[in-house]
Every structure is written in C-alpha cells, then in structure tokens.
C-alpha cells in the first residue's frame, strides 16, 4: 500500500512539472524515478519510451504503467497511471470551469481567435517534427499523402486509417518496398 501511494505521489509530481507531455517529460522522469527514487535505470527508461511510442495510447501513461508494474505489479501500474492523470484532472477542470464563465466576453473571444492562429502553427510544427522520423522513404511518403488527402476530403474514421496503414506497413515491408 505504501509503495502504491509513493508511486501515485511521484507520478503526480511528474505530471505537475511536465508541460507538453511526451518528450518534455524525460528529464523530469529521470530526476524523479532514476536519480531520486532509484526505481529504474536510465536505459530502462529509454526502453520504456521506445515501447511507449510503439504502442497505441498516451506515451506518458504508457511509461507510468511500465514503471508502476515493475515496482508493484498490476496495482502498481494502475496507481502510477492514476498519479499521472490526477494533476491534469484538477488543473483542467479548474480552468475549464473558469473559462466557461468568461467565454462570452468580447475580449476573451478575440484572445481565443488569436490563440487559434497559434494553434495552427503549433500543429504545423508538430507535423514537421514528426515527419522527420515517420517518413524515411517513398513508401511512407505515399502512405502519409494517401491518409492526408482522404482524411481531408472524406468522412472516414481515423480508426480505419490506423488499421489499414498497419497492414500496409507489413505488406510494403514484405514486398521489399521499404527503404527505397
């Protein structure tokens, strides 16, 4: 029980201190999990990250589950995950509650119209950053363009794209198209 609570607290701490999740979390996790608590080695953490990226879902939650499980089995995995999501729940609900009261003010509307422009640029930058790792050759380029165009013009669930592209990845690799 003590370990579970310690896991919850540690990951809540990591959650509060991380802006942006994913990779922004690595240095903070290193300090808390590897240096302070000694719960995992640095290389282990990198392995968890690599697998966390190669599995569906939120990378931060995936890593939390890995470390929690290593320390205290399935309950540990759950405790670490709950710790990870706890700060988000509190902070976002507080902000959402406040914002919904002010969202009709003209100044707030203008502010969010400006912010939306910034969101476009942030998404654009995220796409450029992901592109470098995700599109190494012509086959991947084809998949990316195919998904982008169909998704812009047709109303297809992202789930279908994900399933089809996983199969396409296996097929292209088997056919030897990969890497060309």
């Amino acid at each position: 029980m003590k370990t579970l609570f310690a896991l919850f607290l540690s990951f809540a701490k990591v959650g509060v201190m991380t802006f942006g999740g994913g990779y922004a979390m690595i240095p903070i996790l290193e300090r808390e999990i590897v240096e302070d608590k000694g719960w995992a080695e640095s290389e282990e953490l990198m392995d968890y990250y690599a697998v966390g990226q190669c599995t569906p879902g939120i990378i931060a939650v995936n890593v939390a589950t890995f470390i929690g499980r290593k320390l205290a089995g399935i309950p540990g995995g759950i405790a670490a995950t709950l710790g990870m999501i706890f700060p988000s729940l509190v902070i976002i609900c507080a902000i959402a509650g406040v914002l919904s009261n002010f969202s009709d003010l003209p100044a707030v509307k203008s502010a969010f119209a400006g912010i939306r422009v910034c969101v476009c640029v942030l998404i654009f930058n995220a796409v450029v950053k992901l592109w470098k790792n995700a599109v190494p050759d012509k086959g991947a380029l084809l998949i990316c363009l195919f998904v982008f165009i169909l998704s812009v013009f047709l109303d297809i669930s992202p789930i279908i794209f994900v399933v089809v592209c996983a199969c396409a990845g296996i097929l292209l690799t088997r056919l030897g198209v990969r890497g060309k």
Binding site: I123, L130, A134, I143, V147, A168, R178
Partner: peptide
C-alpha cells in the same frame, strides 16, 4: 511484424494530424 506495422502507422499518424490541423486552419485563417 510489429516493426513493419509501425513503418505504416507512423506516416499514417502524421497524415491524420496534418488533416486535423487543416480544420483548425479553416476556422482560424
């Protein structure tokens, strides 16, 4: 097989995010 599936999944994810980004572009620009 996992590795090969992710060869297809990574560009898929980029395409999907870019397409979702277009919707934000549409309403903001």
């Amino acid at each position: 097989y996992v590795d090969a599936a992710f060869y297809g999944l990574r560009p898929c994810s980029v395409g999907l995010i870019a397409a979702a980004g277009m919707l934000v572009v549409k309403i903001s620009l």
